[in-house]
């Protein structure tokens, strides 16, 4: 992982998110699967350029919400999703937000570079052009020298970076990241978090990031949305006004732990509900 450490710029300058204009809006989004009530009237407004993390107990409907935001699922009638202030018709989000699932899902027959340009290619960008762009970006993603390798030759952290690069190359204003670092060891994970913040500051996208790690949720975010036990609802919408750039040591600072305590209270309550529901 040394190559990732080398990428971390100690003098990152990350401005605060431009407040105001809404990028992504959820209005009364519910979703049933037969008798299962997965999401219950979710309202949220995500401003342009913001880094928003979404945290909640397992089975709270995070993935359902994500699939709706990616355009893979439709909300129940009555709810709607708005992008740039316009309500999106069914299927209208497909191809408009960059979605990165939990698993890297790299294609074994494509090289690093060709995996990274997959989304751009599907969108009809000429391969040559996309490859040239990807070649330039490879350094930022710690993949310089590995462009022509195949996924099965890479470590878990590198594969994840290829998947992230694919998401960034899919040039969309909104990125949805579903626990991208969930499978990495703690050390790699911490490096990848700071690296992601660095990349985010350079490429400036609106990011919605799912996690079930509280530290990660606070460390990355401008705002943390806490989801409650099923049926999923937003229990808390907490702005994180910790200064940027954020250093690794931040997670031991008193401001950080104060926020963490606050979030933990809500999360424990919700986790307990899920647990008790399972015992009944």
């Amino acid at each position: 992982m040394t190559e990732a450490a080398g990428l971390l710029d100690p003098h990152l300058t990350v401005g605060t998110a431009p407040a105001g204009r809404e990028k992504l809006g959820l209005r009364g989004v519910s979703r049933h699967f037969g008798a299962v009530h997965a999401l219950d009237r979710i309202d949220a407004s995500i401003p342009e350029g913001a880094f928003v993390t979404l945290i909640g107990p397992s089975g709270c409907g995070k993935s359902t919400l994500f699939n709706i935001l990616a355009g893979l699922l439709e909300p129940d009638p009555g709810g709607s999703v708005a992008l740039d202030g316009m309500v999106v018709p069914p299927g209208g989000l497909l191809g408009r937000v960059a979605f990165m699932p939990q698993r890297d899902l790299l294609l074994p027959w494509r090289s690093v570079l060709d995996n990274a340009i997959l989304a751009a290619e599907v969108q009809g960008q000429p391969k040559k052009e996309a490859r040239a762009l990807a070649r330039e970006m490879a350094r930022d993603f710690g993949l310089a020298g590995f462009e022509d390798h195949f996924p099965q030759q890479l470590s878990g952290g590198m594969r994840q970076r290829v998947a992230l690069m694919r998401t960034f190359l899919f040039d969309r204003d909104v990125m949805l990241l579903d626990e991208p670092f969930g499978a990495l060891d703690a050390l790699t994970r911490s490096l990848m978090q700071r690296w992601l913040l660095d990349i985010w500051s350079r490429y400036r996208r609106t990011i919605v990031f799912i996690t079930h790690d509280i530290d990660e949720a606070i460390f990355l975010a401008d705002r943390v949305l806490v989801m409650g036990a099923r049926p999923g609802r937003i229990r808390m919408d907490r702005a994180i006004d910790l200064p940027r750039p954020r250093a690794a040591a931040l997670i031991t600072a008193p401001e950080f732990t104060a926020i963490k305590r606050e979030l933990l209270e809500v999360l424990e309550e919700e986790s307990l509900k899920t647990f008790q529901a399972g015992q009944r």
């Binding site: 990616a70 408009r96 979605f99 699932p101 698993r103 294609l107 599907v122």
Partner: peptide
């Protein structure tokens, strides 16, 4: 999940088949 990913990129039937 792989199919869902490509669909989220805006892939149609043809792109799904070939890629």
């Amino acid at each position: 999940r792989q199919i869902a990913l490509l669909r989220s990129f805006g892939a149609g039937r043809r792109a799904l088949l070939w890629k």
